[in-house]
Computed example of a mutant assay.
Amino acid sequence: MHDLGPTAPAGHPPLGPWQTRLTVLRHLTPAAVPLLAAADVLIVQRLSAPEATLLGSALGMRGDLASRLPAMDDEMVAAFGAGSVRYTWLTPTPIERQLFG
């Protein structure tokens, strides 16, 4: 897991065989565009309008698709990969609600 904090870094640690990198960005900034464009899969929660525009330009999205991202519910995520997008509602179990609120 590679938590980048508030900004994207200049580089990232190299991967070995059979390894996967999960990168967490707290905010999308122009510095993150190369990282977004190179990702195989992106999972995003609701974004602000400027972040949605930035993601849309990084992925070459249609404007109407990027405009939906600020309107997603709190319990939704959008998964981008292989040229498609899937929206998913996350439903925590009762024990998850008890543990995490």
Rank of each mutant, 00 (worst) to 15 (best):
H2R: 09
D3S: 12
D3K: 03
G5T: 05
G5V: 04
P6G: 08
T7A: 13
T7P: 01
T7F: 11
T7Q: 14
T7N: 14
A8N: 07
P9D: 06
P9T: 10
P13A: 06
P14C: 05
L15E: 00
L15D: 02
L15T: 02
Q19K: 10
T20W: 09
T20L: 14
T20R: 15
T23K: 01
V24Q: 10
H27K: 10
T29C: 06
A31I: 01
A32S: 14
A32D: 05
V33E: 14
L35C: 00
L36H: 07
A37L: 03
A39L: 03
V44S: 15
Q45A: 12
Q45T: 14
Q45S: 12
R46G: 08
R46L: 00
R46Y: 01
A49W: 02
E51D: 10
A52Q: 07
A52G: 04
T53N: 11
T53R: 15
L54E: 01
L54H: 01
L55V: 00
G56M: 07
G60T: 01
R62D: 14
G63W: 01
L65E: 14
A66G: 04
R68V: 09
L69A: 11
P70A: 11
P70V: 03
M72N: 05
M72W: 08
D73M: 07
D73Y: 01
D73K: 14
E75R: 15
M76T: 15
A78W: 08
A78P: 08
A78D: 12
G81L: 05
G81I: 03
A82S: 11
G83H: 05
V85Y: 09
Y87H: 11
Y87A: 00
T88K: 08
L90F: 11
L90E: 02
T91E: 06
T91K: 10
P94F: 04
E96Q: 14
R97L: 12
R97S: 10
Q98H: 13
G101H: 13
G101W: 06
